[in-house]
Write a protein that binds this DNA or RNA. Sequence first.
DNA 1: CTTATTTTGTATCGAATGGTATGCAAGTCA
DNA 2: TGACTTGCATACCATTCGATACAAAATAAG
Lengths: 207, 207
Amino acid sequence: MVQNQPRPRGRPRSYDPAVALDQARAAFWNTGYAATSLDDLSAATGLNRPSLYGAFGDKKALYLKALEKSRAETTAALAAAMAPDEHLRAALTRVYEAAAGLYMRGDLGPRGCFLIGTAVTEAVDDPEIRAVLAAALSEIDAAFEARIRRAMEVGNLPLSTDAAGMAKVATAVMNAMAVRARAGGDLASLRAMGAAVVDLICGRAGR
Amino acid sequence: MVQNQPRPRGRPRSYDPAVALDQARAAFWNTGYAATSLDDLSAATGLNRPSLYGAFGDKKALYLKALEKSRAETTAALAAAMAPDEHLRAALTRVYEAAAGLYMRGDLGPRGCFLIGTAVTEAVDDPEIRAVLAAALSEIDAAFEARIRRAMEVGNLPLSTDAAGMAKVATAVMNAMAVRARAGGDLASLRAMGAAVVDLICGRAGR
DNA sequence: CTTATTTTGTATCGAATGGTATGCAAGTCA
DNA sequence: TGACTTGCATACCATTCGATACAAAATAAG
């Protein structure tokens, strides 16, 4: 928290840039990057076009800010969820339950994960978007892999486990849950998918 | 093959609609539905706009035809790949190897699966696209599940196996491979992901 | 040949797009 | 108070968008 910051010189802005960014992201989230117009973004944020440009730059820059925010939030949330010392099964279950719940939210309908739902389409043609998406995926992989290695050290998983491969599968299920949410899948189906991969990773007996 | 069909009345069309549909799909595949303009489609197919309309209807109808074709091809290919009587491990390995190879192709760069790469973004706002995507996913699930059940009957998997859940995980990895391809992942990484889930499903020993 | 029928190419339509110039409003600083 | 600085709102710009009207071209039928 920055305190006692001297009031800037000119007219104060009438909105909170962080809030506006979230609102813009919500608009992108529903309809994707290409199909979301500046008018849509203006309506979603309450800012008119010139203010949007002043605050975030052009449409692409605004989208990249939203994308980067999602990447950071996802990585942070995942790290936090996997931190506690408990059984791997408990950690993974909590992660997938949380993901399923988050992915089913959305004003217009369940909209999954922002990265999967919007960046994947743009990634082929746009190197910047592709780079952020790749970074996010690799960070998610790393978080799962680190947690799996911890479980191996503690003896919850055999030492012969292919931690990297298993982590990729764990990430895959998270990504696929986001896909299913956008495809209209119900919460129970998402949860079942999470439970199934937890059983595969931790062994079904471990219940 | 329909033979001896009487030549239709008016001026013959100078293109093959099936080829044109594939070319249009290739354009959508790269940049997604919203970002692909009619000019792009016209350039990709060699048809001018009026001919596109005559052959396929408006942009949305053209996209839906491409989407439906992808759904049908995917389902058919999957059914064929899983038909032979062999070990589950062999069948799954072949499926993932084939998927990885297909997903890494693309004129502009690896572009994954058409359904995942283009329909997921549109699905929230468009019920028709969402329905095709949901149908495709559920058909893929069903194909995996049927194959897993066969393996259970033959004794390749324990009878206590959660076939439906396992099938969802199998689908998830296929979907995630498509995501990774668009995100710039290399072929080896895709193959590793496939191998990892095969090990998880069939047991690592079964090599 | 003429006529009927269908496709193709050009040219264009109105609307929506991303982006911006300009003047007014709301503050701080001296 | 008055100069200065910054954000806001209206109006506008050129371009691109999806879609179509219309006439020339190509073929079969009569």
